[in-house]
Design a protein around this nucleic acid. Sequence first.
DNA 1: GTCTATAAAACGATAGAC
DNA 2: GTCTATCGTTTTATAGAC
Lengths: 190, 190
Amino acid sequence: MPVQKVNREIIINKSLDVFRQNGYHNTSMADLAEAVGLFKGSFYHYFDSKETLMREILLMINLKFKEYVLPEAYNETILPIDRLKLIFKLFGKTLFSPKGGCIVGNMTLETVQLYPQFRDILLEIFDGWIAALKHIYASKYSEEAALKLAQQTVMEFEGAVMMTKLYGEGDYYLDCYHRALDRISEKPNR
Amino acid sequence: MPVQKVNREIIINKSLDVFRQNGYHNTSMADLAEAVGLFKGSFYHYFDSKETLMREILLMINLKFKEYVLPEAYNETILPIDRLKLIFKLFGKTLFSPKGGCIVGNMTLETVQLYPQFRDILLEIFDGWIAALKHIYASKYSEEAALKLAQQTVMEFEGAVMMTKLYGEGDYYLDCYHRALDRISEKPNR
DNA sequence: GTCTATAAAACGATAGAC
DNA sequence: GTCTATCGTTTTATAGAC
């Protein structure tokens, strides 16, 4: 019965959730199939391998970033601190889920050494992220200092996600957010 | 009497390297056996499962920490900044390998939601780590501020490991180290 | 009949365990 | 070495839509 139950976009989004929660190697095609409501063999009608599927997930995230998230960092009609707030919010929304953490961070630690075809995309995502933060920080700091602050912010963010995953609660992410804001606000934020 | 080629300690240390590089789920018993120089069947003479083996690896790290690393943070005969330098050095040596990154960070992101029996040990390791850093920072800051700085330092450290794994080079770890020192030194460190 | 989305069955390889 | 289960993948069958 060729009443189409799913499409590539639905598969990508549902699979993203499963991969983020269970990890890449610990997710089987059967797990993914169950999540989208297909038999695992039918999966190959849409994607010719598990690797291809993950690549498409990462490419989708990178595309979302470049289209909807990163441009906000360069919107000079908004105050730098408000751009920073917005970027944090959009990044969290695109990458993060409470239980699974950050798909980009998870995939970096688990697979970046093993799959060069993932590394390229992960690099582009992190590069864009750091460049966007650097541009905002550069409104107050030198280019060099802004770059270091941008890197520091990303490192703290990913560390905060790890701590939240481990402890299950805590203000790690919020603290990281406020420290970022404090760096470009005139007076202390909290 | 057959000559014993290996013991539990050797297996634990060699397996640690393999797990750190390839991840938990992507490491097979055959991989571990090959690294140790045993037939994979013989592995179960020493450890009754892959899970047990990983638990013992994490317990060994926690024990090393509590015996050799953390006490240095409380050694009041040494200047706080020198204790911080020493702790950083010892932590790196115990947790880190250039290619594989940080075993504790890797395991946290990959398995902490899936295996409660790993989570307990990982929690203890992170708790001890943060408490040690907090004690050093408390020589200059309030208890509350020292705790936040300790958490921030750990978050930055794990983020730096992730960035190093992704980019393959860069001063992420070194920058994180210098920022930590700057927080308790009288004058800027660099 | 042809096309296509899905189901179902089966493949070889390899997993963890004994 | 051998077991069984499951992995990712491939192949074949089936059920509408045109």
